[in-house]
Each structure stands twice: as structure tokens, then as C-alpha cells.
């Protein structure tokens, strides 16, 4: 859970009376929301390191692709998937 995963900002929308920027970030095709509140200089098309839903740093494209591939190779991208679907459901 301590990993930060690089992804590309696809779109940005404003929330909370336009005070907060949320991005849709693509991680090799998996789209997740990420807050840009702590990275005010980030723009559409930028690559950012995202940690549990918050963009924490910009990265250049080469670096982003390299790191993403490494995480993929070692099987560390699991946290992007919705694990909850696979867990035992509450007994009614």
C-alpha cells in the first residue's frame, strides 16, 4: 500500500464549489479518480505519481512508463483492482 503508481491525467473536473480539482487518471487503461489538490501545477496530459487516490508528484513520461512497466512485471498493480468484489460476502 505504500506504492505510488504513475498514470496520465486524462481529464480534470472541479468539485466542492469549484475549489478542488479532481482528475481522471489512466493507469495503463484502468481509470481511477485522483485528487490534484496537492499538485496544483498538474495539467491534462501530465504524468503524475498517485498514492491511494492523491497525486503527490509529477513525473516525466519516460519515467512514468518505465516505473509502470516495472510494477506490472512484479505484479504490484493489484491495488488498482476492485478487490472487494472477490471477498466473501456478508452472510444474510
Amino acid at each position: 500500500m505504500c506504492l505510488a503508481i504513475p498514470g496520465k491525467i486524462e481529464s480534470i473536473e472541479l468539485q466542492y464549489n469549484d475549489t478542488v480539482r479532481m482528475a481522471k487518471v489512466s493507469f495503463g487503461g484502468i481509470i481511477k479518480e485522483a485528487s490534484l489538490e496537492m499538485l496544483s501545477e498538474a495539467a491534462i496530459g501530465d504524468y503524475v505519481l498517485v498514492h491511494v487516490g492523491v497525486a503527490i508528484s509529477k513525473v516525466d513520461e519516460q519515467e512514468a512508463l518505465k516505473t509502470f512497466k516495472y510494477l506490472e512485471e512484479i505484479g504490484e498493480l493489484g491495488e488498482l483492482e476492485d478487490v472487494d468484489d472477490y471477498l466473501p460476502k456478508k452472510k444474510e
Partner: peptide, 19 residues
């Protein structure tokens, strides 16, 4: 926590606290 979930606790696994 997994056992608590199996016992009926509403435990949800999330990627982000914002969810």
C-alpha cells in the same frame, strides 16, 4: 478483519480513503 467480514461485519476494501 476478513474473519469479522465473514461473521457479518460490513468490511470494505478500498483503494483510497476518498472513496
Amino acid at each position: 478483519l476478513l474473519e469479522a467480514k465473514a461473521e457479518g461485519g460490513d468490511v470494505r476494501i478500498l483503494y483510497s480513503p476518498l472513496e
